[in-house]
Simulated scan of single mutants.
Amino acid sequence: MSSERIAGRVGPEIKALLDSRKSLFLASTTEEGTPYASYAPFAIDNECFYVLLSEIAVHAINLQLNPFASVLVVEDEDSADQLFARLRVSYQVQAKLIDNNDNAWQAGIDVLANRHGELITNLSQLGDFKLFRLEPQSGRFVKGFGRAFSFTGAGLLGEEIAHMRDGHKKREESAQA
């Protein structure tokens, strides 16, 4: 099946998942290379995630030191049919810090405020809050067992999307001596 047909099939499902969640999990690395997991409320515009983070938060420090990170948006476990096969989409992203003097700053704040309300406007007026644009580079969408798709290239669906067919394999029985 062509990449376009696959995207046409799973694209609406990915969009629905992203629309249904208000926060994402964010994995970044410290200056020493230690992984750090956190979360942040997000909004989407122009195929990118926007997050507003305090500069004292570990993930904000990490993104400024190393802009490569991973994002996960996952179905709520209470509503999942199967805990081990929750609907989820993950992305490898490159973080861009947006200067508050840049026109993109207000556009990003507006997108976040439209989704999360007046608190965003208030936080954006505090000097320690930084706006990051998380630009997807590649990703993976998992619908359940044996139903996973990978995508490469920029954007929420990438430029190429493929069904991952090299899935689970049975464990070989050990030879008894």
Rank of each mutant, 00 (worst) to 15 (best):
A85Q: 05
G117H: 01
N122P: 01
R86F: 04
L52S: 00
G127K: 14
P136F: 00
A57F: 09
F68C: 08
I56H: 06
K96E: 10
Q82Y: 09
K15H: 12
E135I: 13
S90F: 02
T121C: 12
V73H: 02
E4A: 15
V142Q: 03
E55T: 11
V73A: 08
V71R: 00
A16Y: 06
L134P: 03
V71Q: 06
T34A: 08
L24C: 11
E118S: 07
E55N: 15
L52T: 01
I109N: 00
K169S: 13
Y36F: 12
S2L: 11
T121D: 13
I98C: 01
F49N: 04
D78L: 10
R171C: 07
A43S: 13
S28E: 07
Q92C: 06
K143F: 03
I56K: 11
G146C: 05
K96C: 04
N100I: 00
E32M: 05
S2C: 09
E55Q: 13
L123H: 05
E55D: 15
A43R: 00
S150Y: 07
F84K: 00
N101H: 05
A95H: 01
D99A: 10
V142T: 09
L53E: 02
G108F: 04
L18S: 03
L72D: 07
G139C: 02
Q92T: 11
S174A: 15
A175Y: 11
A85D: 07
A40I: 01
H59W: 11
I120R: 00
G158D: 10
L18M: 05
E172K: 15
F151A: 05
K22R: 13
T152R: 13
C48Q: 10
D102Q: 01
L63N: 04
L83C: 01
A162R: 09
S20L: 06
K169C: 03
F129C: 03
L17G: 07
R21C: 11
A154W: 13
E32K: 13
K15F: 08
E32D: 12
L157R: 08
F149V: 04
L119E: 05
F141T: 02
C48N: 12
L131S: 05
P12S: 11
F25L: 08
G117R: 01
K143L: 14
G167D: 01
D110M: 03
W105P: 01
A37L: 11
H116T: 07
R115F: 10
V71K: 03
Q176Y: 13
D166Y: 02
H163Q: 12
L17K: 04
Q82K: 13
L63H: 07
F141L: 06
E173W: 14
Q82C: 04
A27L: 14
L157P: 03
P35M: 04
D45E: 12
A7I: 15
A43N: 06
